[in-house]
Design a protein around this nucleic acid. Sequence first.
DNA 1: AATGAATGAGACTTCATTCAT
DNA 2: TATGAATGAAGTCTCATTCAT
Lengths: 235, 235, 235, 235
Amino acid sequence: MPAAAVTKSAKAGRQKTGNVEGTRATRVPAPASRVAHRSTQAERREKAEHAILGAAMEIVAERGIDELTLAEAGERAGYSRALPAHYFDSKDAALAALGDFVVEEYLRRVQRLVPGREGLEGFLDRVGQYFDEGKKDPRVLRAFHAVLGSAPGKPALAKSMTRLTEETKKTFVSFIRAGVERGEIRKNAVPEIEAIWILAGLRGVTAQWVISPDTTPLTKVRNAFLHTIRKALEA
Amino acid sequence: MPAAAVTKSAKAGRQKTGNVEGTRATRVPAPASRVAHRSTQAERREKAEHAILGAAMEIVAERGIDELTLAEAGERAGYSRALPAHYFDSKDAALAALGDFVVEEYLRRVQRLVPGREGLEGFLDRVGQYFDEGKKDPRVLRAFHAVLGSAPGKPALAKSMTRLTEETKKTFVSFIRAGVERGEIRKNAVPEIEAIWILAGLRGVTAQWVISPDTTPLTKVRNAFLHTIRKALEA
Amino acid sequence: MPAAAVTKSAKAGRQKTGNVEGTRATRVPAPASRVAHRSTQAERREKAEHAILGAAMEIVAERGIDELTLAEAGERAGYSRALPAHYFDSKDAALAALGDFVVEEYLRRVQRLVPGREGLEGFLDRVGQYFDEGKKDPRVLRAFHAVLGSAPGKPALAKSMTRLTEETKKTFVSFIRAGVERGEIRKNAVPEIEAIWILAGLRGVTAQWVISPDTTPLTKVRNAFLHTIRKALEA
Amino acid sequence: MPAAAVTKSAKAGRQKTGNVEGTRATRVPAPASRVAHRSTQAERREKAEHAILGAAMEIVAERGIDELTLAEAGERAGYSRALPAHYFDSKDAALAALGDFVVEEYLRRVQRLVPGREGLEGFLDRVGQYFDEGKKDPRVLRAFHAVLGSAPGKPALAKSMTRLTEETKKTFVSFIRAGVERGEIRKNAVPEIEAIWILAGLRGVTAQWVISPDTTPLTKVRNAFLHTIRKALEA
DNA sequence: AATGAATGAGACTTCATTCAT
DNA sequence: TATGAATGAAGTCTCATTCAT
């Protein structure tokens, strides 16, 4: 999962986008006398930063990553033109934070766990969720693909994207491996390889839908693709 | 197939990216006395334009589309900083031309026809070619994905990309349809839907390989994906 | 009288070029805690803007309006090349502001009220002042004529010029009308018409003097023209 | 009256804009054998040059002098973008030629001699003609004022304008002087001074009409101004 | 002779960034 | 802390001009 965005306030390496089990419990307590004030300040800052990243994400979703300017993000968030530069020391740092933010938002939606089924069917449910959630909130999906598409050549973004990809592949692999152990998936499937084309198909389809929703009947394609996975993996 | 790039010199609608059956044989001969001059001038221009687009493609492949500047493209092509702007009049127009150019280059490689097999196997050969050619010339593939990734929100690029996508889908559809007629592909497959996820997988995989070749064993994934297609479609 | 120049900072409609009775006294006071800051910032900006417009006026006076570049105006004012563009957003907007500024400067000089005489003689005094002040400060006069001469076809400038012309005509008209009422000016004079040729002569003479001072004995022509007005209007 | 425009072909100082009495009779005859061809060439060139200057004048009339580009003038004249630069070696030379051309066109209209009256009335007729012809062909008048307004700071143009001004003043002076001799004009009038404000008024009025025809009732102002001249000069 | 190709200089404009309040 | 002011670096675009055909 993506590590913390690097902002000036994050000096102590705050764990911003935690793992499922991530915890913020270990924050160092401030001197007693100023606790109230401090926490108010910190909260205000956190809130402003969040708003700015949200605004940036919207801009990126609408017009692409190279139309993003710090000033516009600040203004759209309801703050000054100067604030983003004040928080994120450089544009690159801001992009890195944005990468993490988008991943976070994306995952928050996609990982609303269906407690449900296990094994192959559970995996298919999970993959199906990627389609469903993407469709439910195209803004995040658009931003995600914009970021993903700009990742090559932008180290700041590449980092988040690579991390996300590897994490997701790992998750898929363990699902597949479990399916094999349960006898639902054929033994000669190579989890690491299957995971790649499954994730690729997922992204390719949603990307295409983002570009051209009218010619991409997402639900039908989703079902066809799930069927494909089943056929390709079943024992 | 992509239509002609629109540049100022293309007043008479030069047939730049011909169809398979396209022919340049019908160029209207100029008045005799000026043939030499005209053709020389035109060639000079054509050559320069091609060089500039090639240079632009390289830059895009290396550093992404928003690192592309007209000036650098001109210089890298061995001309002046001003020439690209002189040709294309605006950056948007230049991007449009670049989109067509990249598509053209991409197709030129991918469509080296395998006279070979027909039906489902022919289709798989064809899809396999996309992987193989992409691997053979990563520069074009990188450029292609850079352009594709920037298409949303850049109408100039979206046009070429949409055209390419629709053409390719159409091609895939007719392959699948033929397979159904031959009894090799199951009757309840919906060609228009299958075509989408197949193309999406193709692009998703190559995209991922472009971003992170070390963690993406292209050949193995290619084979797994072809196997997947077979399983998903076979009667 | 010319209305306020429109610059980005002028959000609240600052009263830049006040009427005779105009007052700046009503500026809304900022929240107490920030008065110092705000006013200092605002003053800094006001000062810079004024300096830039002054520099622009000088350039225009010396070399004409189409030799004016934003960069040079910024530098000559002692700031950076980029500042003018930063203020005015576009060259057109800068020209509009310049038009207002020049008119303002021009009027400030010409309207130093002679409390003096009334009626026809008062009018002649006033017209004479146009000549006298023009001669005293040729820089402003040159700039004024440069702007005036470029007004057709430059809407940004035309606006200020038209406004000034109409205002001045109106002033002349009321002078003439008063003279008629006092019985000093012949009854069949049509104030609106006389005002036009008087203003035209005024401008035509000073324009010619600006172009070619050596062949244009301003004082003598001034007196001849005043004599002409008297003869043309007297009862 | 304006001297020859300087173009590359005008090596022998061709008398382009002659005085009333100007004559072209002294052109050196070409070698007999090539007379026909030569003259055809020369005529073609003359025609093209004329067309280009006419096109340039139109552009200037419509959009002002700094919107004039050599390329557009060439194209609008029906030739290539490169031709103007080919004829007039530099833009400055082209402007000089344009200045002469505009003056020429202007005079051609204004000097259609009214054989008519002599003395003061003849002079007034002449001045009246300036108004009348200007109104009849606003295109030329607009171009004239555009050129006149840009003359300061553009030596190339200033030359033609100064020449025209001095010539016109001279003409006016001799009219006035004649009027004095005939006893129609008061003896203490100073012809050189009166000429200046009369010309100035003329130009000022037409300038204002060009800028804002709706608020400038030209005919009425013309008549008022002629009346003014009569009153100012009459014995 | 006339035209299209190509260049170089310069203007406008946009931003990230730094500075002062 | 947060904001407006100001700068410097780039990029696009336009032209006069030169070169080649």
